[in-house]
Amino acid sequence: MISRKGWIPAILLVLSLVLIAGCTGPAEKTVKAGDNVTVDYIGWFDNGTIFDTSIASVAQDAGIYHPLKDYTPLSFIASSGSMISGFDNATMGMKIGESKNVTLSPAEAYGEYDPEMIIPVNMTDLTSQNITPYVNQTLYVGYTGQQVRVHSIPNNTTVLIDVNHPMAGKTLNFQITVRDIQPGNV
């Protein structure tokens, strides 16, 4: 039989074993659809050129640092459609602190390059907005600020604008590190 003094350590031992056995610590959470996920990432092309990152020191080392960019971890709702599908899918099932390298085909990223998305625009539509177009010029369209590129200027009245996403047709590589997972409202 255990004395009264012996009961307290025995109860504490049993409670601690129950808590340890039944608890899921933060490092054991895994990304599920609807969760608010926070990640750090580095994106690079197959040739090794880094095109984007959430980490300032990596951007500086790669020569792509921009002082107006907010170099903080990226947050998004898993499976909400707010991220490119391959990136979103890659985070599913990851745990806090886990890192993963993934290669995304164009279909998993920004789609295949479509030559039919090169559209003619009247030169006057641009010059009336004080834009003097030149080949490879990047323009930002409308309220969304969508990026388009001047593909060519075949004559004095027409400008061909490429409305493909700038990353269309490209294979993208990412290193993804999950920093936080907050359960979604299910």
Rank of each mutant, 00 (worst) to 15 (best):
Q137T: 03
P67E: 12
M94Y: 05
N185Q: 14
N155I: 05
V14T: 14
N130K: 14
I55W: 00
A33H: 02
G93Y: 11
A59P: 01
E98G: 02
P166E: 07
A27C: 01
L19Q: 04
I161C: 09
M83W: 03
L13W: 11
N155P: 02
R4I: 12
I181K: 03
A90Y: 06
L172K: 06
A56L: 09
A107T: 06
S152Y: 03
A107K: 12
M1E: 15
S82T: 14
Q182F: 03
L104Y: 06
I8Y: 10
E98K: 09
A109T: 02
N89L: 12
Q146D: 12
S85E: 12
N185C: 02
T132C: 00
H151C: 03
L19F: 14
W44K: 05
N122H: 06
G6S: 10
A56R: 13
S99N: 11
D125Q: 13
P120R: 12
D61N: 11
Y143E: 13
W7E: 14
D61H: 02
G86D: 10
S80F: 10
I181T: 03
A62G: 04
T124A: 11
V178T: 08
D114P: 01
V135H: 00
G34K: 13
L104K: 05
I11G: 07
K29V: 04
G184V: 08
G169P: 09
T49H: 06
I20H: 04
